[in-house]
């Protein structure tokens, strides 16, 4: 199974060449909090909610697998209720975005989900 008798006895033969070549290249890692990578188009980041489009049908709350969305009373929609998002529970599956009849819920390309207080990740209607 092991082929080529001579090269085996050359310790670090192949990898050393590759390692030396990489010494003169720029690092592939990114200095994250200082430098940010742009998320690609269609990225499923934090949810954004536009209440002026919302009907209050509650489909999003019914399909959500993690109970991120609960329906609370609100005067701003036609059916007098609106979703409340606890984004800390969200798994970014996108069921609510798909099922929303008026496209009131959409994904942003924001992936900075670390916050100091849990309340910062709650969208109240």
């Amino acid at each position: 199974m092991v082929e080529g008798g001579e090269e085996i006895d050359m310790p670090w033969g192949i990898v050393l060449k590759e390692a030396l070549r990489n010494l003169f290249k720029k690092p592939v890692t990114i200095n994250y909090p200082v430098v940010n990578v742009e998320a690609p188009e269609g990225f499923r980041g934090l949810l954004s909610f536009n209440i002026s489009k919302c009907l209050g049908c509650g489909n999003c709350a019914r399909v959500c697998p993690t109970n991120t969305i609960t329906m609370v009373p609100s005067d701003k929609t036609r059916l007098k209720r609106a979703p409340r998002f606890e984004l800390a529970k969200c798994v970014f599956c996108g069921s609510c975005v798909e099922v929303c009849p008026t496209k009131a819920i959409s994904f942003t390309r924001n992936y900075h989900t670390a916050v100091l207080k849990k309340d910062e990740l709650v969208i109240n209607p």
């Binding site: 199974m1 092991v2 082929e3 090269e7 085996i8 006895d9 033969g13 990898v15």
Partner: peptide, 15 residues
């Protein structure tokens, strides 16, 4: 594949 089959360090620990 080339590295794994030729590198002494790997062969000693896995063969």
């Amino acid at each position: 594949e080339r590295v794994v089959l030729r590198e002494r360090t790997i062969l000693d620990r896995t063969d």
